[in-house]
Amino acid sequence: MDSGSAKDSPPSAKPKSKKVAMDKNVNGTKSDGKSFKEKKKNGNILKEKDDIKHKRRKAEEHAEQQPKEAEIWFDDVDPKDIEAAIGPEAAKIARRNLGLETGQSKQSVEQVLVKEKASEGLTRAVAMDCEMVGVGPKGEDSIVARVSIVNQFGKCIYDKYVKPTEEVTDYRTAVSGIRPENINTGEDFKTVQKEVADILNGRILVGHALRNDLKVLFLDHPQKKIRDTQRYKPFRQRVKNARPSLKLLCERLLNVQVQTSEHCSIQDAQAAMRLYTLEKKKWEAAVKNKSNNKNCKT
């Protein structure tokens, strides 16, 4: 009985061994290595196809999210803030519009200073610049020879030569661009003075060293409505100059060249306005805070 049991046990073990072998083949053992390799290879192919589809979908989504340049006019917004909020592409557009990108020299100054397809009428803020000529024995005293005013988008809304009220002893043409024929047939001073006063009334006045312009026009303007780019502290800090010229501010902050030869009062007014709109939001907030603090003290 015992010997019979011993003889019967090997056959009973064979099916078990065979079953294990079959299971291993299904799982891809060496006995069926070829099948396993093909499946693995096919798996990689499928994975690569999925990766390609995923990358393509991501690229399409990224393309859809890119901002269009024509949609935005970046007034009073720092490109760094735009990059943090929207992304590098939007910041790139902002820098291009502000004239801060490499290759800006290819753009005309007007493209940087004037907004295309914008209102040509009066706006809440206007910028003014005057050209002057010299009077007196040495031409050291100044009288107004030309007045130019632009709106918030840089569009010229007023530009007139002024007939001299005194004998001109120095036309300062190299700087002022004024010649005898320009002002000999110019508008009467009183007329220009009244027209300018009417335009400025109730509006924010932007300019560079505005004290000089208002002085030759014998006009004043409420201090709380004056935005002088020469006196704006953040500009002075950025260029490290207590009394920066308009030329310096444009070079450093707008990356454009102005006043390269004879001055143009229209362009100078446009430059001052563009500097203002670049910083408008922060500038106006500072003026408001200053006013609120003054009211609290009183």
Rank of each mutant, 00 (worst) to 15 (best):
Q152M: 03
V150I: 01
H263E: 09
G99V: 10
N241R: 00
V216Q: 05
I149E: 00
R231G: 05
V109F: 05
S176K: 00
Q270C: 08
Q223T: 12
K233D: 13
H221V: 00
V192W: 06
E262M: 14
A118Y: 03
F74E: 02
E284C: 11
G207S: 08
N42R: 12
E181S: 08
I52H: 06
Y171M: 09
N27R: 07
V192T: 01
H208W: 09
K47Y: 12
R243P: 03
L219D: 06
K92P: 05
K24N: 07
D76Y: 12
V109P: 01
K233T: 15
R231T: 14
P15A: 06
I72V: 15
Q259D: 00
E83I: 10
R95E: 14
N295E: 15
T191F: 06
G33F: 09
E140S: 11
T191S: 05
N184Y: 03
N44K: 15
F153C: 05
L122M: 02
N289D: 15
E131K: 07
V109M: 07
G207H: 10
L200I: 09
K30E: 08
E167R: 05
E101A: 08
K117D: 10
D78A: 11
N293D: 13
R238F: 14
E116G: 02
N255A: 13
V206N: 01
G28T: 02
M22I: 08
N182L: 05
T191K: 10
V162R: 04
G202Q: 13
K53E: 15
T169G: 03
E89A: 12
K18A: 13
E64W: 11
V126W: 09
T123D: 02
G154N: 09
Q66G: 06
P10H: 04
H62I: 07
F36R: 12
G186P: 02
S265N: 02
V77C: 09
K138N: 13
S291W: 12
K215S: 15
E48R: 13
K190L: 07
A125C: 02
T169K: 00
K68M: 12
E251F: 09
Y158L: 11
D51W: 12
G87D: 11
V168N: 01
N182E: 01
E71N: 14
L249T: 01
G207T: 02
Q66W: 08
G139R: 03
D188E: 10
V77R: 01
F218A: 14
D129L: 09
N295V: 10
K24R: 10
M132H: 04
V114E: 03
E187S: 11
M22S: 07
R146H: 06
D220R: 13
A90M: 06
M128L: 15
Q259Y: 08
L46Q: 14
S142G: 02
P222N: 02
V135G: 00
D76V: 06
R179T: 10
A13T: 10
I82Q: 03
E64L: 15
